[in-house]
Design a binder for these strands. Structure first.
Lengths: 185, 185
DNA sequence: GAAAGCATGTAATTGGTTACATGATTGG
DNA sequence: CCAATCATGTAACCAATTACATGCTTTC
C-alpha cells in the first residue's frame, strides 16, 4: 500500500499560486490554509528539495544564493491534477483534547473546572470565527476576480460553519452541565 | 516547555472505567472515543508499561502470564484529575484532505471530479452520523444510570453537531459549484 | 541603529503507524 | 475443527515538530 504524502501536494499546489519560495509557502499555509493544514520549516525545505529531485518543480537561484525561486513543472502539474482527482479515502479523525477531558470529567468532584474549560474554549472559538470572517471579507473585496477565490471561500465557509456548530455545542453543553448539577443536589 | 503526552492520559482515564487490559483499552477507543481519539497497539502496550514504571498504574499478572490486569493507583488518579483541570491551550487543527483538494480545485478543467468528491464525502458523513446516533441511543437505553454517561453523551453530541454542519456545508457547496459552472458558460 | 520581517536550512527528537510474530480461548 | 476474537508485544519506519544556526533587508 503506497502511502500518499499530502504535504508534498500541499506544497506543489501552492506553487501554482503566487508562492515562489519556501518562506512564502510557509506563510501562506499559516494564514490562508491554517484552519485545515499546517506545516513547519523542517518539512517545507526538505520537501521542496525532493520535489526538484523528482522533476515536479524547478528552482532558480541564479540571482542570489540566499534566495531561491521555485516553480512547478509540467510533470508537477500533471501529478497535482492527478492527485486532486483521487477520491478522499477516509474522514479524518481529529484528536481533540477538550473532548478527551470531558470524556473523563466525572472523575472530578466539582464541575467548576469543566465549566471553565468550556468557557475559555468558546471564547477561543469566537476569536477564530472573527479571523475567518475577516479573511472572508478581504477575499470578497480584493480577490473576487481570481479563479481560485471561489474555492478559497468554500474552504473558509467550512471553517465558519463547523466553528459555529462548535460554539453552539459549547453553550448547549454548559446549560446541560448546569442542569445536571442542579438535579443532583 | 514540558510537552504533555495526551495519549498517556487517555489510557490513564480509561483505567478508571471497566477497561483493565491493553486489548480492551484499544477496543474502547476504537468504539467509544473514535470520533475524537485514536491509538494503535504500538502505543498502548509501551504506554501501559511506562505508567506502571511511573507508579501511576499497577499490573496484576499472577493468574496468567498472557493476560495482564491493570488498575490505576492513587497517584495515577491524582495525576489524571490534575491534568483534567489544566486548561486546553489551543484549538486543534485538523488536517483535512478534502479541503486541501478543494483549495486547489481551480487547477482542474472540469468540476465533475470535485463534485464526485463532495458527493462521496457527504455519503461518508451520513454513515458516520448514523453510527453516532446508534451509539447515542444505546447509551441512553443501557447506560443512562452510569455517572460517566452524561459526559459520553456530550462528546457524542459534539460529533453529531459538527457532522451535521459538515453535511450542510457539503450540499451547500455542491449548489455553489453548480451555479459557478452555469454562470461561466 | 535596533527591531521586525525575510529567508534558508539541519539535527535531534517525538509521536505514532504498520507490519510482524505469537499464542490462547470461544462459539458455531 | 475452524474461524473469530481475545490477547500481548516489538522493530522498523514515517511524519512532523522543535530547537538551533545563520544572515540579509526593510522600516521606524
Amino acid at each position: 500500500m503506497p502511502k500518499e504524502n499530502h504535504t508534498k501536494y500541499a506544497i506543489l499546489g501552492l506553487l501554482t499560486t503566487s508562492c515562489r519560495s519556501g518562506y512564502s509557502i510557509k506563510k501562506m499555509i499559516d494564514t490562508s490554509l491554517n484552519h485545515f493544514w499546517k506545516i513547519s520549516y523542517g518539512q517545507v525545505y526538505p520537501t521542496l528539495k525532493t520535489l526538484v529531485q523528482e522533476g515536479l518543480a524547478e528552482v532558480d537561484n541564479t540571482n542570489d544564493l540566499d534566495k531561491k525561486e521555485y516553480s512547478i513543472t509540467e510533470k508537477g502539474k500533471q501529478e497535482l491534477t492527478n492527485w486532486l482527482q483521487l477520491p478522499v479515502e477516509k474522514l479524518s479523525v481529529e484528536k481533540n483534547e477538550l473532548l478527551l477531558k470531558l470524556f473523563f470529567s466525572s472523575q472530578l468532584e466539582s464541575q467548576s473546572s469543566t465549566f471553565l474549560q468550556l468557557e475559555t474554549y468558546e471564547k477561543k472559538l469566537h476569536e477564530r470565527l472573527e479571523v475567518y470572517r475577516n479573511i472572508q471579507s478581504s477575499i470578497e473585496t480584493y480577490s473576487a476576480h481570481e479563479q481560485d477565490a471561489m474555492y478559497w471561500l468554500i474552504t473558509l465557509d467550512y471553517g465558519i460553519k463547523t466553528t459555529l456548530a462548535q460554539i453552539e455545542w459549547c453553550s448547549c453543553t454548559q446549560e446541560k452541565i448546569k442542569k445536571g448539577v442542579k438535579t443532583n443536589e
